[in-house]
Nucleic acid binder design. Structure first.
Length: 439
RNA sequence: CGGGGAGUAGCUCAGCCUGGUAGAGCACCGGCUUUGGGAGCCGGGGGCCGCAGGUUCAAAUCCUGUCUCCCCGACCA
């Protein structure tokens, strides 16, 4: 993409309303614009990142045997009356009346809807288990939206739902999602730690929040420091295997958010030099809730012996839009965003330092063509502004690689290769640059 | 939902106390100069001063109401 043609309205100054770093940087980099409190438009740059994150989530869900569908944003109130949540949910639920005076709502989540779909179509234990998900916009009318995209009212969420005949089956589904989540966040360059979460009236130990550590996080967290050295990408996971050992390994050490924190257990289980007390951002939540909805809504299957039982269910969420902010919180510096490669809007920022110099321009055009031909996402800064502005913009939007082309280097066949994280900064030949960046 | 703050140009803000018909920097347009880290000079364009009502000869400024946004707290992916 040529920057001269790209819609990327950057801001030099910090908008007054943005307090935390991810919100500031997203506005400044031209990723989002606020429409109203907690509701945002995604501009091209932000949208690219959102899509990349969404696709990683999708690939890992698919790999775990979860099947994608798409449910509507607007739901009928009657389904929620069946589960009893229409009254329980309170003002967070955006209620709408259609022209026929029917009560509708903008879905904050989809348990009722998926249970309705399931009960209408599945009658036999032979059709179990099932694992379904969708990636859809949700709306929760938060009293006080804040932190930009991280705590908006409208947000993009991946939510999966499992259906099993019994607890053992539900546990297998839970474990699949547990492992899929570890891999999903790791692929985005995040260290997400599963932490014990409140299971509410259901009880048991099948609820975990996946938290990434960041000083600006909303929740206070306590965990064993060894988690930071764990490798979530255990090679060749087979989702048909028994995943319990993996889950056990990841839940062996102490990890809890403040609401589940037990200071005594923490002191007993974690040596002082390993005790980590910091803040975190919740990016995922997996939850087993048994027959809560299936019972209320009559989602039953017939067993081999002819008797009917309500299915055992669980739900598994990932805050897709929140992840955009969370990744920035976890990866930035004073100059701007430092994107992990997997989610970067562009892999390479190609900077032409002197657009009216023909040799420089030709080199840039050649690099742009060759990298594009290799399938690299390149943002080519072909605009006629001063070098300092280009560097500042490039660092603000945080492309992992920066290729700087100026007349001085071009004269000797060299360009400058820099990595946004500061690890690489060298002058190399044009051919070598293509190879290095494509690697 | 309780407490606090703010709405003036695309962005950051001054002007308001003490009413007299709208300003700066950045951004934008034109020109000249400059050109490896957010350039300089000259000339321009752009504002129902959030909205409604009131007081006054006169309101961005004073009064009342209202809407919106932000922050702290309680609540949540």
């Amino acid at each position: 993409m040529r920057l001269s043609r790209y819609f990327m309205p950057t801001l030099r100054e910090n908008p007054a309303e943005a307090q935390i770093v991810s919100h500031r940087l997203m506005l400044r980099a031209g990723m989002i614009r606020q429409s109203s409190a907690g509701i945002y438009s995604w501009l091209p740059l932000g949208f690219r990142v959102l899509k990349k994150i969404e696709n990683i989530v999708r690939e890992e869900q698919d790999a775990a045997g979860c099947q994608e569908l798409l449910m509507p944003t607007i739901q009928p109130a009657d389904l929620w009356r069946e589960s009893g949540r229409y009254d329980d949910y309170g003002k967070e639920m955006l209620r709408i009346t259609d022209r026929h005076d029917r009560d509708m709502l903008f879905g904050p989540t989809n348990e009722e809807l998926i249970t309705d779909i399931f009960r209408n179509s599945v009658k036999s234990y032979r059709d179990l288990p099932r694992l379904l998900y969708h990636i859809q916009w949700k709306f929760r009318d938060e009293v006080r939206p804040r932190f930009g995209i991280m705590r908006g009212r409208e947000f993009l969420m991946k939510d999966s739902y499992s259906f099993d005949l019994d607890y053992e089956g539900a546990r297998r589904a839970y474990n699949k999602m547990f492992v899929a989540y570890l891999r999903t966040f790791a692929r985005m360059g995040l260290k997400a730690i599963p932490m014990a979460a409140d299971t509410g009236p259901i009880g048991g130990d099948l609820s975990h929040e996946f938290i990434i550590l960041a000083d600006t996080g909303e929740s206070e967290v306590f965990c064993h420091a060894d988690y930071l050295d764990f490798d979530p990408m255990m090679s060749g996971v087979d989702y048909e295997d028994d995943l319990q050992p993996v889950v056990d390994e990841w839940t062996r050490l102490y990890a809890a958010t403040d609401e589940m924190h037990d200071p005594v257990a923490f002191a007993e289980q974690v040596p002082e030099d390993k005790a980590l007390h910091t803040r975190g951002i919740e990016v995922g939540h997996i939850f087993y809730f048994g027959a809560k909805y299936s019972e209320a809504m009559g989602a039953t299957v017939q067993q081999a012996d002819g008797t009917e039982v309500p299915v055992e269910m669980g739900s598994y969420g990932i805050g897709v839009s929140r992840l955009v902010g969370a990744i920035i919180e976890a990866s930035h510096d004073d100059a701007g965003i430092i994107w992990p490669e997997a989610v970067a809007p562009f892999r390479v920022g190609l900077i032409n330092l002197k657009v009216d110099d023909s040799a420089t321009r030709e080199t840039c055009e050649r690099l742009y063509a060759e990298l594009s031909a290799k399938g690299m996402d390149v943002l080519y800064d072909d605009t006629d502004v001063r070098a300092g502005v280009k560097f500042a913009t490039s660092e603000l939007i945080g492309t992992p690689w920066q290729l700087v082309v100026g007349p001085r280097g071009v004269a000797s066949g060299l360009v400058e290769l820099k990595s946004r994280d500061g690890d690489v900064n060298e002058e190399i030949s044009i051919d070598a640059a293509v190879t290095r960046v494509s690697g």
